[in-house]
């Protein structure tokens, strides 16, 4: 298995640039995609954002100074692209929000027992209602089991800030779930 650092050096020296990039892509594409998918929910959106991320990686990798791990830098690029996408989507989607809620309910209607579906929908909605940064930190901490140092460097915040985001997310989810 190729090491990220060697592949980056190969890329930066222009020696078989595309081959080095392809190996980095193969190695990390799934993690990047799932990180984005958790935030944007829809596959088509996650696909668009993920492509943007890798195009950005191609154009910025020459300037990567290896001061942090490649994966941290890559997740940060993905985080910024996802935030951009969500902000653009927020502007456009105010009108269709009620339709989306209806879609959630319809999608859940046909699966499992009614009670578990309801809980599932409630969780999805609670996660969707979290502010972007809190949602991101929650996902990375719970599902990726990432330490706060790494979360902080991805989201561009302090370790304390990341911890606070996680606990705020938890509190907010509790409030949303109790309301439902």
């Amino acid at each position: 298995m190729h090491n990220d650092q060697d592949l980056i050096i190969q890329f930066q020296q222009g020696f078989q640039k595309e081959a080095a990039f392809t190996l980095l892509l193969k190695k990390h594409q799934q993690k990047v995609y799932f990180q984005i998918k958790r935030m944007v929910s829809e596959h088509a959106d996650a696909d668009d954002v993920a492509q943007q991320v890798w195009i950005k990686v191609w154009s910025k990798l020459d300037g990567f100074k290896m001061e942090s791990k490649f994966s941290t830098w890559l997740f940060r690029v993905a985080y910024n692209e996802t935030l951009d996408f969500l902000q653009k989507q927020k502007k456009q989607a105010t009108q269709s929000q009620s339709e989306d809620n209806l879609d959630y309910e319809n999608a859940a209607a046909g699966s499992d027992s009614p009670k578990s579906s309801q809980i599932q929908i409630a969780l999805e909605q609670a996660i969707q209602q979290l502010p972007e940064k809190q949602r991101f930190v929650f996902m990375l901490r719970y599902f990726e089991e990432m330490n706060y140092e790494k979360i902080a460097s991805i989201t561009g915040t302090s370790v304390g800030g990341a911890k606070a985001n996680f606990h705020q997310a938890l509190k907010k989810m509790e409030e949303i779930l109790k309301k439902d």
Binding site: E18, T22, Q29, Y33, I55, W58, S59
Partner: peptide, 13 residues
């Protein structure tokens, strides 16, 4: 996905 990204990157390049 890999093919799509590589073709886009190629065009951009």
């Amino acid at each position: 996905f890999e093919t799509q990204v590589l073709s886009k990157v190629g065009k951009e390049n």
